[in-house]
Design a protein around this nucleic acid. Structure first.
Lengths: 365, 365
DNA sequence: TTGTAAGCGTTATCAC
DNA sequence: GTGATAACGCTTACAA
């Protein structure tokens, strides 16, 4: 059953039927009613492909993850997609999920989608500071929105949590608790959000007059395993860090596991703070202090932004930096020996551990 | 740049250019080369929508999850999509992810996709025993494959782990360790996989001459929270179960957490076995014994099956039941008091706890 | 308010 | 080997 057949049966032209069905005003109520009820009766559904070709719109938005691998084992992916999907669904748009296969560049996937006119707009996540996907799309003026900023952010729509501020808050919290040896388990610094968070960490420390030793910063990656590995390495340092900031909750949960394995209680001997507030964070042991990221809402906004772009909105008006919220649970607390930490640790120089007796008191063995 | 313009520049007809580009044999090598190089030079990419309309194929496969909500917090979703996506990508098909909004039926989403001819085939997951999506699609002879069986499974392609066998193995393992009070934290029994696993549990128990008390079976749902809740309730039972089978790993991880909260060590006082072998299972505390589900491979197979269906394959030839593998880690072990468990517990009747002194010895308080 | 007809950019069917 | 030309099923000027 197609439009031609339906109009034939109604004794009307395709034009009139099409307009009746699409809610145009210049069709008589009686005709519309006849058309609609006959369409339902005959089970008519318009052919989306034909509509798309004719209208020049694909009614489809693509999502091109930086790497799906980054989401393996990561529970918040479904929530992001749900937010995007429900918004697109309401607008009768399809969501194409582009899975970038190992060894292929996300840029090539973007290209395929854009040049084949398979999508009207795109959503990107986990932007690199210099992101080839962004350069390409912004260069072409193609409608897109990103989760996270990058160096071209001024030119496109985005939603981002203020990661710099977030890590500043988390670091300040630890400083206020008396920590001085604060480590950061980060990830690949090509990710812009890694840099931002790092900047917040450094800023808070700098304000406290602390330059963190190089060894306190690690770029291990996402996921539990990476967090555990990093934590174990950090615990071998002397002086030993009394607090661990983690790039993501899974990292933090892995780190806490490693700590427990070493007989160190997270939140007591060593504080840990995560990022994202995944469902697991609330029920971790101990419940993880973290930064709340309303990922579902972010998905909704991203989809809405792309839709707005298609309606001619200005990308400059579609840039949102959300204020972070620090969720304090039980994985952070004062360092075990605040006096020693405050006195000794803060003056450790940037690179090598101090030569014996050269400066400052050493920690008790 | 479109086909017409490209052919004009080449001084060839659209027909020839189209055939040269699509690898037809009846075009001279010289012409093909000219066409291909000119196309690249001018950055020609065919309009997918036009191709789709003309060829009658949408080159798109849809994935309609039973409920995306079931995947919130569930880490294996990305892996499933990766498997589907990489296979489709290789075939130059798009993957449309249909997010079923709360309050809407997955069936309606299927309808929209099928009747609007937006997809050539579908993939479904978490089938109900009586699944409206399946009834609808099978009834129309639409190409689709499911992750999991249902009562119409004979009529369509599917991949499934043999859940009945899996739970039989898990239950037998516990019986061999000496457990007799074995609880099952299940989920909504409309899911066919819940029924299958339940059947395996019952079969193994029956073979050991055990009819489980009704209270030992719970239908709490997925996720950590549900698992924790169920475990706490089960631990209030007398006699107390010495082992917990869980419908999914997250459930099991939640259950283990609750046990620890009650001062019970998983793998010692109470054994726990999960299902799926998500990455978290390996690093849980203690490492979780579970059933391995190669979800990525399942995604790959499902996509390949739908593609095969489009090439005319017979659904009856595309039905795979995979043999489960029990992964033994540290969350299972003998019951704390095997003698008492073996003697007393097995004879508890099905429904109510025994009236005092009516039959069998009671457990020591 | 309704109808005619020209696209949309391909692929497919024929002739030549 | 190559080229007209007709679909594909819809939307949308424009005409009536």
């Amino acid at each position: 059953m197609n439009l031609k057949e339906l109009s034939r049966r109604l004794g009307l032209s395709m034009t009139t039927v099409s307009r009746a069905l699409n809610g145009y005003s210049d069709v008589s109520p009686r005709t519309r009613e006849r058309v609609v009820s006959m369409a339902r009766e005959l089970g008519y559904a318009p052919n989306a492909t034909a509509r798309r070709l004719s209208s020049g719109r694909s009614e489809t938005i693509g999502f091109v993850p930086q790497s799906l691998a980054a989401y393996y084992g990561n529970p918040y992916f479904a929530d992001l997609l749900a937010g995007i999907g429900e918004t697109l669904h309401a607008a009768n748009f399809d969501l194409v999920l582009a899975c970038v296969p190992e060894g292929e560049a996300p840029l090539d996937v973007c290209r395929k989608l854009v040049e084949g006119r398979r999508v009207d707009g795109l959503i990107l996540d986990r932007t690199f500071t210099a992101d080839p996907r962004v350069e390409y799309l912004a260069g072409r003026g193609f409608p897109f929105a990103t989760l996270g900023r990058d160096r071209q952010a001024a030119r496109h729509a985005f939603v981002d949590l203020d990661g710099e501020r977030a890590l500043e808050m988390a670091t300040m919290r630890l400083l206020e608790l008396g920590h001085r040896e604060i480590a950061f388990i980060a990830a690949d610094p090509r990710f812009n959000f890694v840099r931002e968070r790092l900047a917040g960490y450094r800023r808070a420390l700098a304000r406290a007059g602390i330059v963190p030793r190089r060894e306190l910063l690690r770029h291990d990656g996402f996921g539990e395993e990476a967090g555990a590995r990093a934590a174990r390495a950090l615990m071998r340092l002397r002086p030993r860090p009394t607090a661990l900031l983690c790039i993501e909750d899974l990292t933090a949960i892995g780190a806490m596991r490693a700590l427990r394995g070493l007989g160190l209680r997270p939140g007591r001997e060593v504080s840990v703070i995560g990022y994202n507030d995944i469902p697991l964070a609330r029920v971790a042991e101990p419940p993880l202090s973290t930064i709340r990221m309303p990922i579902r809402d972010a998905g909704r906004r991203l989809a809405a932004m792309v839709l707005a772009l298609l309606d001619g909105a200005d990308p400059g008006e579609l840039q949102e930096i959300w204020e972070p919220e620090l969720i304090l649970r039980e994985s952070d607390g004062p360092p075990p020996d605040p006096a020693a930490a405050a006195e000794g640790a803060a003056r450790i120089p940037l690179s090598a551990p101090p030569a014996a007796g050269r400066r400052g008191p050493r920690r008790p063995p």
